[in-house]
Structures are given as C-alpha cells and as structure tokens.
Design a protein around this nucleic acid. Structure first.
Length: 108
DNA sequence: AACGTGACAAGGC
DNA sequence: AGCCTTGCCACGT
C-alpha cells in the first residue's frame, strides 16, 4: 500500500475537528490545501487504517448528511458515533449549529 | 498508459 | 426537493 503525503495531510486535518462538531469533505479539502477536491478527502478516509486515531465520523457531505447509503452498516455506525459525541440530527440531517468548524454548508 | 470508479460538490432543470 | 451533468484527481486494473 502506497503512501501519499496528501492522505496524511488530510488525516491530520480531520484530527483537528473538535468533538461534537462536524466538517464537510469540501471544507477539509480546502483547509488541507486541496480546494475543490472533496473526492480526494473521501478517498483518503476510505484508505484510513481501521485502528487509526482519526475521527472520520466528523466528516459529512455538503448537504449536512452522512454520505453512506441510508440504512447501511457504515451509515448507522457513523450516526451512532456522532450521536454519542453530542451531535444532534434533525431527521437525516445534522443540525446547523453543529457545523461551524470553519463555515456553514450550503442549504437548499 | 488508458479507463472506470469513488465515504464529493455545484449548478441547471 | 430530486435527478442529471460536469469538474475533480488519486487508485487499481
């Protein structure tokens, strides 16, 4: 398995998201120095070692929702972790107050 | 080396 | 609110 510094930069950025808060893939990408490359963040998290000390659950999509298929094991796992950290859901969307690590997500 | 894929995002209907 | 298209770019085939 290869080692790209871009992954490590992204992982380090995700580690900085405070407990109880969340950030979007796009925000993490920008702060990591890769503006517009949200997919890269998803890819980096996907490649994350399972035992790594990185709060991957705090990264969500721009809609304020979990990006795993609804009902999937991964989706429920992420929601459980976030809920245990105090993050509050409004249906399948996370409450806006819980954003704010950097900026608010777009809303429709 | 080309191609398809993906834990995304933004814009148009 | 949904669905579709395009822009992204690192990865595994």
């Amino acid at each position: 398995m290869k080692q790209l510094s871009s992954y490590e930069i992204i992982w380090g950025m995700v580690r900085q998201i405070p407990k109880g808060k969340v950030a979007t893939y796009g925000q993490v990408a920008s702060e990591s120095g890769f503006p517009g490359q949200a997919r890269l963040v998803g890819y980096a998290l996907h490649a994350l070692p399972h035992h790594a000390d990185v709060p991957w659950q705090r990264v969500i999509n721009s809609q304020g929702r979990i990006s795993f298929p609804p009902g999937s094991g991964a989706s429920r796992r992420q929601r459980r972790l976030l809920t245990s950290e105090g993050v509050i859901f409004d249906g399948d969307k996370i409450r806006l107050e819980r954003f704010g690590w950097m900026m608010s997500p777009r809303r429709k």
